[in-house]
Each structure stands twice: as C-alpha cells, then as structure tokens.
C-alpha cells in the first residue's frame, strides 16, 4: 500500500467552548477521492479549512507528503501552494478578469512568466468549456461558470491535493451538472481530492472512500459501495435515510 498523501491524526478544533472537530483521524492516498458527508454543521468545512491551514487546530497533527504541516515552524504559504481549495461560495476576485483570477497565483507565487501562465490558463478554460470567458469579469458569469472558474483557478497552481467544499451548493440543478462534470474530469486526471458534499448520488459515483461526519466525530469510513448499501453505524444509517 502506498504512503498516504495526507494524514490527519486526532485533530481537535474548538470555537469558543464549542468543539467542532473531536479527534478526527483520516488518511488520503495519492489519487484517492474522499467524500465527506454529514449534516449541516457537522464540521466538514472546518476540517477542510484546517487541512489548508486557514484555521489553527487545537490538538492533533496533520501530515502532507509525510511532513508535519501543523508544526509551528512550518512555512504556511509553502504548504498552501501544494493544496488547492475551492469554497462553498465562489470567492473569485471581482476586480480581475477571469484570466487574471487564474494567472495571479501562478505568476506571483510560482513565478511563472505571464505569457506561459496565460497560455496554461487558456488551455484549462478551453478544456472546461469557458474559452470565450477569459476577458470577462466574474459578475458577468453565471453561478456555474463562476464556480468552474474557481476550480480552474485552484487547478492552475498544479496542487498535489484539491479540497472542494460543497462546490455545487449555490447552484441550480443544470449548473450542478456542469460543475460535477469538471470534478469527474479531475478524477480521470488522477487528482487527489477531498470533497465535502450534500450530493449523495454524486458522492456515490465519484468517491473511492466516503467518510460520515457527525457532530465533529468521524463516525464511519468505508468504500462508497459499503457506506451507501451497508452502513454499519446507526447514526450513518439515520442520516442516509433522512437524505436519500
């Protein structure tokens, strides 16, 4: 078995006196697609934000490529360069064109030349059916287009690991399809991903591993097939019954 790309060990996170993550353990192998499911408020977004070091954890440790990234001496910016994250809300930069949104990090962080960065960005836009939107500002795009641009923006830095936080939650069903298409392509490209999602049928289709979070506890973890057809934990069973 290959070494995990990401290892989360006993991670705790409190907000004020409320524990949002209660000792989470999770391993993600290279090219594995992990889906986090669970009720609203169960801690899915918080876990992703902790992995991306947007939140400081209160206990436990997180390893990326075998190196502990929760070590206080670690260079956070360097870690973030290897992880792409796409948020629940689109978070594109409204004052920049689509092309500038995508090329900002490659140019300023990874020091790629403008011409090369733009060429790569245009390739990605073309691949995901947005070739004609390179010069547009985000407020002129539909929700689905904005979310696809956000995903492309994260992809453009060629991350080792992609974190997708409910990338379809703000979209209507037709647009959801567009965005899920892009995620499917990422999987075919062997991208390692963790997705927080409420789209159960999609989770079932795309995930290698499904994790059920409940009140900050990782109740159950298994293959998509096992979780959806034969959940062991009663809480998982209740949750799935309520959403399916």
């Amino acid at each position: 078995m290959t070494d995990p790309l990401l290892r989360v060990e006993g991670v705790w996170k409190h907000y004020h006196r409320h524990s949002v993550l209660r000792g989470i353990d999770l391993e993600v192998r290279p090219h594995e697609v992990v889906c986090l499911i669970g009720a609203s408020g169960s801690g899915k977004s918080t876990l992703l934000r902790c992995v991306n070091m947007l939140e400081t954890i209160d206990d436990g440790s997180i390893f990326l490529d075998g190196r502990e990234i929760t070590d206080p001496d670690v260079d956070e910016d360097e870690v973030r360069r290897r992880i792409g994250i796409v948020f629940q809300a689109f978070n594109l930069f409204p004052h920049m064109t689509v092309l500038d949104n995508i090329t900002l990090a490659p140019r300023k962080v990874h020091k790629v030349g403008r011409a090369q960065a733009e060429e790569h960005a245009r390739d990605l836009l073309a691949r995901f059916g947005l070739a004609d939107k390179a010069g547009a500002y985000p407020d002129r795009l539909s929700g689905g287009q904005q979310q696809r641009v956000a995903i492309i923006r994260a992809l453009a830095t060629q991350p080792r690991l992609m974190l997708l936080d409910e990338v379809t939650s703000a979209l209507d069903p037709a647009l959801v399809k567009e965005v899920l298409g892009i995620v499917r392509e990422l999987k075919e490209g062997e991208m390692t991903m963790i997705l927080a999602t409420h789209e159960m049928s999609f989770a079932r289709e795309i995930a290698d591993t499904v994790c059920f979070l409940d009140g900050g506890v990782l109740r159950e973890r298994g293959t998509a097939e096992q979780i959806f057809t034969d959940p062991r934990d009663p809480r998982t069973r209740d949750f799935l019954r309520s959403v399916l």
Binding site: N52, D77, G84, F87, A89, N91, H110
Partner: peptide, 21 residues
C-alpha cells in the same frame, strides 16, 4: 474576509494578498 482567505489559500503571502486582492 473570504477574499483574503481565497488569496491566502492560493499561496499568496499576506503582503501579496494585500497588494493584489
């Protein structure tokens, strides 16, 4: 603040997030 986290999560430093975003 989500604009700043989006910038930071792309690997931009505090100064770069400030300047470009």
């Amino acid at each position: 603040p989500s604009q700043r986290s989006a910038a930071r999560s792309l690997g931009l430093t505090h100064g770069q997030s400030m300047r470009y975003v």
